[in-house]
């Protein structure tokens, strides 16, 4: 079963003369273990797509389905609960709450979900170790580098039962080496069974994806699937 599915999704902003078709009939399915990158010029609908996938916006027509649940069938609190339990976000910056430590930031969504702090804490610490930040539990965001903060954000996005990560230019503020390390981590989390949608304008980062979707004017114009046959490619590189 797909973790995320967009079925013939349309999103129109405004009405009449000021009507803007942000998305026009987009269908995408993302399976567990799959990283999908979305590229396109500004105004192509990338952000709208991510907002719809995250339940922050609803389609004018069509449906968004997360792990078998059609978001359109949920009431407000149902939607909020699903967002909290099933998916995590990673943004360009301002991912973490400045007044909470790394471990508290990661434990927060668990605690909001009713997990007791004494149970949430060990989960948060384990998640930190998984992203290579053993010993950082008590650090505050401003005591960590940009790359380390993004690692914490990725750990938080996938803590507990979450299997869908939505990332919006997660490497935007980082230098190229740190950005690559963040992508490697994201990739390894996906290889371990998560699903992720990555919006980026950096081709080098999108290239970590299994599929790259090109959006233009609200329509998927093309999809590039990396084949596993890298050896054949090298034959032709000379």
């Amino acid at each position: 079963m797909s973790v995320l599915e967009l079925r013939d999704v349309h999103r129109t902003h405004g009405q009449g003369a000021t009507e803007v078709h942000a998305l026009r009939g987009v269908s995408i399915a993302v399976a567990p273990g799959e990283l999908v990158a979305v590229m396109g010029p500004s105004g192509s609908g990338k952000s709208t797509l991510l907002n719809l996938a995250g339940g922050l916006d609803s389609p004018t027509s069509g449906s968004v389905v997360i792990e078998g649940v059609d978001l359109g069938t949920l009431n407000r609190s149902g939607l909020a609960g699903l967002r909290r339990r099933r998916l995590g976000y990673v943004f360009q910056d301002l991912n973490l709450l400045a007044s909470l430590t790394a471990a508290e930031n990661i434990a927060l969504p668990l605690e909001l979900d009713g997990v007791a702090p004494r149970k949430a804490r060990p989960q948060a610490e384990a998640a930190l170790i998984e992203v290579g930040l053993d010993g950082y539990a008590e650090r505050f965001p401003d005591e960590m580098s940009g790359g380390q903060q993004q690692r914490v954000a990725i750990a938080r996005a996938l803590v507990g039962q979450r299997r869908l990560m939505l990332a919006d230019e997660p490497t935007g503020a980082l230098d190229s080496q740190t950005g690559e390390a963040v992508l490697r981590l994201l990739r390894s989390k996906v290889d371990a069974g998560a699903a992720a949608v990555l919006v980026t304008h950096e081709a080098r980062h999108a290239a970590w994806a299994d599929r790259v979707i090109f959006l233009r004017d609200g329509v998927v114009v093309d999809t590039s699937v990396g084949s596993a046959d890298a050896a054949a490619l090298l034959e032709t590189a000379g």
């Binding site: 081709a203 999108a206 290239a207 994806a209 790259v212 090109f214 093309d222 990396g226 490619l233």
Partner: peptide, 13 residues
């Protein structure tokens, strides 16, 4: 663009 992206994906792999 698609072809070059595919190449880039394969190198990245």
């Amino acid at each position: 663009r698609s072809a070059t992206m595919r190449t880039l994906q394969q190198y990245t792999r």
